[in-house]
C-alpha cells in the first residue's frame, strides 16, 4: 500500500528524469521552430530577420525536397519490404529443429551490432566496388559486366546495405513472436490435412500480424533518420539521387549554413515522423496496463 509519504517520495524520484527530458525536448525544438521563421545564415551574422513562412515555402518548393521525399519513401519502403519478407522466412526457418540452432542464430543476428559507418564502407568498397569488389569478381566469373553500384543504382545500393543491417532485428522479433505460437493448433491443422501454405496463411501469419506491425513501426522511426550510411558512401549524390530528408536538412544547415531553411526542414521531418509515431504509440499504449 502506497502511503501519502511514499507517493511524495516517488514523485521526487521521477523528477530528474522528467525535467531533463522536458528540457531536452522543449528547448531545442522551440529554438528550431523559432529559427524556421527567420532569415538566418551562419555566414551572415547579425542579418537575422523575421520572414514568416518563407523558409517553408522555399524548402517545400525546392526540387531537392521532392527528390528527398521520394528517396526517403523508397528507402523506408524498400528496406521494410526486404526485412519483413526476409525476416518472416528466416524466422520460420530458425524456428525449425536444426543442428546448431544457437550458432545459426548468432550468425544471423550479427549484422545488427555492426556500426553503420563500418557496414556502409565495407559494403561499398569490398563488395560493391566495380573493379576490386567481390560482386564484380563474381559477375566476371559468370562472364557478365560488373555493376557500378553507386553510379548506376545508388539508392538501391544503400537500401541493400541498410536492409542487411535491419534484417536481424526483424528476424529476431518475428522469431520471438513465432515461438509464442501455440503448437497444438498447428498440429491439429496438420492432422486435418491442411497443406503448409494454408497453415501459414491462416494460422501463422495472423499470429505474426502484431509483431510485423511493431517491426514496421519501429524500423520506420529509425529508417526515416538514416544518415551515416549516406554520408560515408555517396554524400547524397550523384545529384540528389541518395539524399533523404535527414540528409537534406543536414546539408542545408551544416554545409550551406542556412539555419532558417534547415530548421524549416527539421520541422517538416518532425511532422513526418510524428505521423508514424502516433500509430506506434497507440499500439504500445494498448499493451501497457498499469
Amino acid at each position: 500500500m502506497a502511503t501519502q509519504h511514499s507517493r511524495a517520495a516517488a514523485r521526487l524520484m521521477m523528477t530528474p528524469a522528467v525535467i531533463l527530458l522536458l528540457l531536452w525536448m522543449i528547448v531545442p525544438l522551440s529554438m528550431t521552430l523559432y529559427f524556421s521563421f527567420l532569415r538566418y545564415n551562419l555566414l551572415m551574422p547579425g542579418m537575422e530577420e523575421w520572414i514568416g513562412f518563407m523558409n517553408y515555402e522555399f524548402f517545400l518548393t525546392d526540387p531537392a525536397f521532392f527528390a528527398a521525399l521520394t528517396n526517403t519513401l523508397l528507402l523506408v519502403g524498400g528496406v521494410l519490404l526486404i526485412t519483413i519478407v526476409g525476416g518472416v522466412l528466416l524466422a520460420l526457418l530458425l524456428d525449425q529443429p536444426i543442428f546448431g540452432q544457437g550458432i545459426v542464430r548468432i550468425l544471423v543476428i550479427a549484422p545488427f551490432f555492426v556500426m553503420p559507418t563500418v557496414s556502409a564502407l565495407v559494403w561499398k568498397n569490398m563488395f560493391m566496388n566495380p573493379v576490386s569488389g567481390l560482386f564484380a569478381w563474381i559477375a566476371k566469373g559468370f562472364g557478365l559486366q560488373p555493376v557500378d553500384f553507386f553510379a548506376e543504382i545508388p539508392l538501391l545500393s544503400i537500401i541493400l546495405i541498410v536492409a542487411w543491417q535491419w534484417l536481424p532485428f526483424a528476424t529476431l522479433i518475428l522469431l520471438t513472436a513465432l515461438q509464442s505460437l501455440d503448437s497444438e493448433q498447428l498440429e491439429a491443422a496438420e492432422m486435418d490435412g491442411a497443406p503448409p501454405l494454408s497453415r501459414f496463411r491462416s494460422i501463422i501469419l495472423p499470429h505474426l500480424a502484431r509483431a510485423i506491425t511493431v517491426v514496421i513501426l519501429i524500423q520506420t522511426i529509425f529508417l526515416l533518420s538514416v544518415f551515416a550510411e549516406i554520408l560515408v558512401t555517396t554524400n547524397g549524390g550523384p545529384g540528389y539521387a541518395t539524399t533523404n530528408i535527414t540528409f537534406l536538412v543536414y546539408a542545408q544547415s551544416l554545409l550551406q549554413f542556412d539555419v532558417g531553411g534547415g530548421s524549416a526542414g527539421g520541422i517538416v521531418a518532425v511532422i513526418l515522423a510524428n505521423i508514424v509515431a502516433i500509430f506506434l504509440m497507440r499500439m504500445i499504449g494498448k499493451n501497457l496496463d498499469i
Binding site: A2, S6, R7, A9, A10, R11, M14, A17, V18, L21, W24, M25, V27, P28, L29, M31, T32, F35, I221, L224, S225, F227, I245, T246, V249, Y250, S253, L254, V259, G262, S263, G265, G266, I267, A269, V270, L272, A273, N274, V276, A277, L280, M281, I284, G285, L288, I290
Partner: peptide, 28 residues
C-alpha cells in the same frame, strides 16, 4: 512500485521524445 494515475501518460510521453527525429533538434 508506486504507480499513480498519470504514470502511463508519463511513460508514453517519454517514449514520444524518442521518436523525435534528430534533425529536428540538430541546429539548436
Amino acid at each position: 512500485f508506486v504507480p499513480a494515475k498519470r504514470t502511463k501518460d508519463i511513460l508514453m510521453w517519454m517514449l514520444s521524445t524518442k521518436m523525435l527525429p534528430a534533425v529536428g533538434v540538430l541546429i539548436p
